[in-house]
Design a protein around this nucleic acid. Structure first.
Lengths: 113, 113
DNA sequence: CCGGATCCGGTTTGATACTG
DNA sequence: CAGTATCAAACCGGATCCGG
């Protein structure tokens, strides 16, 4: 998905994509690009020069999918803060419950001794 | 994702969801539902009865996400055939190449002997 | 009925080195 | 530059048993 976003409107080279997508390995990038190509979502053009040059671009089909991915990205950007806030609450709630359970155990122990 | 679609508009019980989503294990369903709950995308209501009864429903936030998921589902339904057709072509192309390579090897071998 | 806990094989991934 | 090859490590996801 990030790959489709990274491709954007333009044709890009392998190393450009690799630099643009933080933390992806060459292996994974290759794998994803090949799979997209297989599904005809992107196009791969190899120039027979030295050093090698390979360009990737979205197909018309890929472009239609990109719109949806943009919508997802916008949703994330809009709600990411709320989700993270809620998640923190949820996790702390768990922590509170755990504390209560521990306190209960301590109490039982003190009563028993 | 399928879980969000399955939840739809209504409140549903665990076993309903489990029956509705083909091939998901209880473990996975539980895991997904808990993660969604953690991100406040669904709500979990436990009734303290025997046998247990647990109901799940989408939160307002979850409802906004559901719209996007519907869009993705529609995209899939619309283009799935094209993608599969292209994929088949792509794979057969590979097979053809492989055959050519094998033929070339056979030729070399027959020439050598 | 709705899970939690544990084990366990298979897939995926990262790291590293290498190549035309 | 744009990958491929190989191996170890991490991460699932399923199967099974248990428990309120």
């Amino acid at each position: 998905m990030l790959v489709v976003v990274a491709l954007g409107e333009e044709t890009k080279r392998f190393s450009q994509l690799h630099a643009q997508i933080a933390g992806i390995s060459k292996k994974m990038l290759t794998q994803v690009l090949r799979e997209l190509e297989r599904n005809s979502l992107d196009k791969r053009v190899v120039y027979l020069v030295i050093p090698p040059m390979v360009e990737y671009s979205l197909t018309p089909l890929g472009l239609t999918l990109r719109e949806l991915i943009y919508a997802l990205r916008d949703w994330s950007e809009r709600y990411i803060e709320e989700v993270e806030r809620r998640r923190t609450e949820y996790d702390q709630q768990d922590k509170t419950l755990l504390q209560e359970q521990i306190m209960a155990l301590v109490q039982q122990w003190t009563e028993a001794s």
